[in-house]
Design a binder for these strands. Structure first.
Lengths: 218, 218
DNA sequence: GTCTATAAACTGATAGAC
DNA sequence: GTCTATCAGTTTATAGAC
């Protein structure tokens, strides 16, 4: 049962690994990609390995060469959805100048979360759609990946509050749950034909910061 | 195949219908209730009619006396989730005094939507969780019920905007999608043990109206 | 690495007794 | 109204050829 190569072994005199260029994904990656797409639109239990195999261009039996079971595929799809968004947010926030305000960091986090959600749509949408519907074992194995991301936001919001950049009369956990929930749901309704992602991000950041009433001033 | 009695027939000299008191739900209602609960936690396709029957205290074959098919059960669960919330919001908004501002109406709508989502949790959560995962036929039959509710909010937000009570630089459709999405997601994270629904409603209305920064003034 | 063939179990739905 | 029994079709996963 081969695993995805993570790094070249130091001692093996192999040829240099091919650059991760715009080459077609191998069977293993195609299975994950199509599984995410099918989990998203049909749910986990409703998706058969025959469907995944068909979409990936192999026969059902061949999947078991790459994955131990259907649940292992599920685990990888869930993790990939969360980790992609986590990485996108981290990179964007940490790319800000050292003197950036917490307001700037939160705005960057919102923009990056939106971009990540929509860019990895099948993985992220599958994640939020089916998380409440999967076997308890898969759920508990994935929970830590979610916790890490929640903690990242909690620290950011708490710091902003301590710096006086956030309102004091609303719980930061409530803000985090409300905000992330709202952002997650965009993947269910955003339509690129009705406006650019950049424009949507601007509107959402404005509403999150200043509300929908609009007679505010900074 | 009996249908749920909707109103007493004018010509039939039947005894007065029993008051809809705190009596146990009949088999048909129990099936709907347990189906909603199982759809919510397992998804539509993953839920077997044997599971629904067991939970409702009957045998699988008996379900077909009350429902034509599994998909008919699905349709009723989906409609019930949306209609319950729609009714709750309508009643609460229309109960306001005649001179209520649009701001008051929107606040009442948010509070009622939250209450409805959480009070009919299995139906509403099943609805938002599985809507993207059901057969196209069931989807299209349910779509109109969703459209009615979206239109109600669009009219309310548009009126508020025309009255100058809403910011002009954000699309009202974006506001509606973002707001309803955020409110829907509360059913996935709200925990009554961490605070009352009343307190949560207050915090959410405040954040939606004035944002998370907090240095605003009216 | 991918295939075919198959095992063992489960599915929605129907027929007919009571 | 509810039951038992059953049909025809699926499902995940395995074994072994190539």
């Amino acid at each position: 049962m081969p695993k995805k190569p993570v790094a070249a072994k130091a001692s093996a005199p192999e040829p240099a690994p091919a650059p991760p260029a715009a080459t077609e994904p191998d069977t293993r990656d195609r299975v994950l990609l199509e599984a995410a797409r099918l989990f998203r639109h049909q749910g986990y239990a409703a998706t058969t390995l025959r469907q995944v195999a068909d979409a990936a261009g192999v026969k059902a039996g061949s999947i078991y060469y790459h994955f131990e079971s259907k649940e292992v595929i599920l685990g990888e799809v869930l993790d990939k959805g969360m980790l992609n968004v986590t990485d996108a947010v981290r990179q964007r926030v940490e790319a800000l100048p050292a003197d950036a305000s917490w307001r700037d960091k939160i705005a960057a986090g919102i923009t990056a979360h939106l971009w990540g959600m929509l860019h990895y749509g099948d993985f992220t949408s599958a994640n939020i759609r089916i998380y409440g519907q999967i076997p308890a074992t898969a759920k508990s194995r994935h929970r830590i990946v979610r916790r890490v991301y929640a903690d990242y936001w909690d620290r950011m919001l708490e710091s902003a509050r301590e710096a006086g950049e956030l309102r004091q009369d609303v719980n930061t956990t409530v803000i985090r749950l409300f905000l992330i929930g709202a952002l997650n749901w965009t993947v269910e309704w955003y339509n690129p034909q009705r406006g650019s992602l950049q424009d949507l991000s601007r509107q959402i950041v404005d509403v999150v910061f200043d509300g929908i009433l609009g007679h505010t001033k900074h």
